[in-house]
Design a binder for these strands. Sequence first.
DNA 1: TCATTAATCGCAC
DNA 2: GTGCGATTAATGA
Length: 252
Amino acid sequence: MRTSVQHTINSNARKFSIKGVSCGTCVNDTCLIKKNLSTPSVFDFSHKKTEIRCRKGQQFIIEGAPVNGLFFILKGKVKVFRTGINGREQIVRFANEGEIIGHRGFGTEEYYSIGAIALEDTVLCYFSKAILQEVLKTDPSFTYDLMLFYANELNKSEAKVKTISQMTVRERIVDTLLYIHRKFNTKNDFLNLPLSRKEYADYAGTTEEQVIRIFSALKKENLISAKGKKISIVNLALLKQEISEHNYYLDS
DNA sequence: TCATTAATCGCAC
DNA sequence: GTGCGATTAATGA
């Protein structure tokens, strides 16, 4: 009891102390809130956020927990996953700055069907369900943007079903590498998101061992190079060519 | 340095 | 392709 009171006080104190980081000065231009900030109701709404800080590896959405709001990534990177049979993790997607997390649980769902873990130290903007519903009902352009976002997510999700069900393991892993590459780009020639072999496997729908095997094959073929978690793509064109026949499309 | 944790590899199914 | 166990490399307290 005492700790929960303490926590409330702390989070309130934190909210005031970082008041300076408003949506107006945010650098994430792709954020839906930032894009609609010229609308007065969205502008007011943007001040009702709570900032949440997560350390690397910290889980901020737990599968099965009640839905109570929506997260936007202010800074950092996140993986969204679902636990499957035998406790195996299926990574649904990776999310970058400016993106929305927990939207699937919004709507009529009562409980989150996914979990989310910060892949690095991350700052989240959090809006409660009630606050969000209010702005959705008053501002059509914001709601419309959010609807487009949902449609897009559904499209990607359907594309991923095809990827996992019809591609070979090697193709799925190549696809994963390209996905990380186009979504997070590179830094000093390495993919700008250090992932474990297991995380590649969880996204590609295979096992850690397969990832290791395919990686070493790709290294031998001079398509990629890898030093631990630092992966760099040596021959992007050839990798793309490998899966081009599956007419995959860019899902940002 | 020692103790974990992650990455590989080999082998059976 | 998958799963398990042994070995080796990397990381970090």
